[in-house]
Design a protein around this nucleic acid. Sequence first.
DNA 1: AACGCGTGGAC
DNA 2: TGTCCAAGCGT
Length: 307
Amino acid sequence: MLQQTTVGAVIPYYERFVSRFPTVRALADSPLDAVLSAWAGLGYYARARNLHACARAVADSGGFPSDLAGLQALPGIGAYTAAAIGAIAFGLPAVPVDGNVERVVSRVFAIDQPMPAAKPAIRDAALRLGADPMARERPSDFAQALFDLGATVCTPGVPACGVCPWVGACAARALGIQASLPRKAPKKVRPVRYGVHFWLTDDAGCVLLRTRPYQGLLGGMTELPGTAWRATPWAVEDAMADAPMAAAWRAAGQVRHVFTHFELILDVLAAHVPRVEGAGFAARLDALDDAALPSVMRKCVRMAVAS
DNA sequence: AACGCGTGGAC
DNA sequence: TGTCCAAGCGT
């Protein structure tokens, strides 16, 4: 859960998740849809799909691998997570290099190549630090100390060098370039895409939903039926070709949502019919809290209900 | 190697 | 409002 996600965002999800799936076996025996429901709102849903596959692999093989290569071969576990598990769970002399560690190490050693080209040099330098006898004796504490140094002292922007225990050893500080490291490539422009989604309710207290393909963006998650997301806005009459039913559609409002690599502007159209029909499935309105609706779709629901 | 992949908080 | 970015991974 912590891959690219803040501790504050993760904690409530973590508590609910381990309560609902208390063991690897429980997670492995649960349907993927239940896992995606528990993950809904946290983002990067491939993590949930990978974690589920990982639990099944671990359960099938009778336990966790006990070495880094075995860990990294599991779905969703890369070099960082394998090292973190190795150091923290198994006490192996591994150095997990996350964004915090990259920042600390690039500064201490004044590695001023731009990211991501600097990654190999940073990793090598981190491994040198990890070769210190004290680090090798306490791999978990060493990893946690690097995380916390990066999170609270050696921060992005202007770091708190005045209270840093490594200020005397920091090459970037000596050069006065600490605030500019690690160097990053310029950002790319974020394109805008447009779509139309349909909120269709009926007399039985249901709404029509559908499941997205299990690969790609929001893979396996639930959504309101809608058009494709494209670079040009939709004329209402064109979007109607994708409406689930002929009905008295009304404009419920507009939703804006920013993804990592594009911005999305959605028009929400709403209608009420005696009984919903169309591709997808009817879900009870009073059960939407438990649905696998990603945040962008919850915004659409909120807009439709409020209109 | 570069890109696709979510979300919400901090500033 | 916009911008940055967080305990990365898979392709």
